[in-house]
Amino acid sequence: MNGDTGSDALLDLVREDLRGFGGYASARTYDLKGEVWLNANESPWANPADAGGASRRYPDPQPPALREALARLYGCRPGQLLVGRGSDEAIDLLVRALCVPGRDAVLVTPPVFGMYAVSARLQGAPLLEVPLVDGDAGFAVDLGAVAAAAEQGGAKLVFLCSPSNPTGGSVPLADVAALASRLAGRALVVVDEAYGEFSDQPSAITLMARHANIAVLRTLSKAHALAAARIGSLVADPALVRVLRACQAPYPVPTPCVELAVAALSDEALARTSARVAQVRSERARLRQALATLPGVVRVYPSDGNYLLVRFGDPGAAFDRLLAAGVVVRDQRAVAQLGDALRITIGTPDQNDRVLAALDAREAAA
């Protein structure tokens, strides 16, 4: 690792008043052993609805079994992982820990996931926007414009959604690495890989050994079908993970969710997940090809995620036809650059057939 991209330079990006901040030391912070636990003011009796009785105890703040399973899944070390309530919590923690209100900016590339901008606004961080470029190959990030805007606007955080939601494109790893090199000592480049399992591109985690100012967001909500469990991870330099842990709430992940996630990361469960991801990818290709042949469809964008962005000649009519058929999709018409677009999640083969039937005006007229 180059010296100018090491942990020391990374910690210089943290708010001055939070460097060395210890946070709240909960009863589970200390690795103490005993048979009678009377240190957390918990009930000595289980709730009548809790047959096993485990829920009367506070959970481990960063459950070792879950961190180890996630580290194996993502190809990193447990010390590089911060586990929290979905990716949203990690986004909020990053903005709060790195951005001084009114001074340090957050850069985003719209149209994109809206929580980056929400977290910036809640922190009072200036928001810099470098719109995606809509070209023949789909929407793409203008990395030169991103780098220039980050330098000129004082960005501490640059969020790259890859695959991007809702547009579906991925940022090439070479571009991520080049941006991180240019912004070393200035900004943290955060690659949101919520949909990474559906893409052929390797994870940006593979770049972190050479670039300490890259962090990666992952989640079990999408490919692993655990959206309700709210298990998200930030993979980052261990020094930054320690800072964010001090800023995190004492018990971020409920025990039942941890147990469910650990079970979902067993070899057998992962094999089934892999098969379902392969089916989604196959259905994505089929649905994209079929949608492109329908009257009223203007453009279907390529996608590395489990969704397709589709432009329509009459998006309102398309949305209404889908809703009348009992199909709910994401309306993008209020989003800049997407006034004629809908985002359609890839469903089961039967669900996808239902989408096609609802949108086929010829079939509706028959």
Rank of each mutant, 00 (worst) to 15 (best):
N2R: 13
L10T: 03
R19I: 13
V36G: 02
W37V: 05
A40L: 12
N47H: 15
A51N: 07
G52Y: 05
A54N: 06
A54D: 10
R57T: 05
D60H: 01
P61R: 02
P64C: 01
L66P: 04
A69S: 09
L70S: 10
R72V: 01
G75T: 10
L82Y: 05
V83D: 06
V83C: 11
S87M: 12
D88L: 11
P101M: 00
P110Y: 12
V112A: 02
A140V: 12
V141E: 03
A148M: 07
E151H: 03
C161I: 14
P166T: 09
P166Q: 08
P172A: 14
A177I: 12
E193K: 05
Y195P: 04
G196C: 02
E197N: 04
F198E: 06
S203A: 10
A204L: 12
T206P: 00
L217C: 01
L217P: 01
A227H: 12
D237S: 03
P238S: 01
V243C: 15
Q248C: 15
A249L: 14
P250C: 05
Y251T: 04
L260H: 08
V262G: 12
L265C: 09
A271Q: 13
S274T: 12
R276T: 06
V277A: 08
R281G: 09
R288E: 11
A292H: 04
T293N: 09
P295N: 09
P295E: 08
R299H: 10
V300D: 01
P302Q: 01
P302R: 02
D304F: 01
V310L: 10
R311G: 06
F312Y: 13
D320K: 11
V328K: 03
D340Q: 09
A341C: 15
I344D: 10
G347N: 01
T348D: 02
D350Y: 00
Q351H: 10
L356W: 13
L356G: 11
A357S: 15
A364H: 07
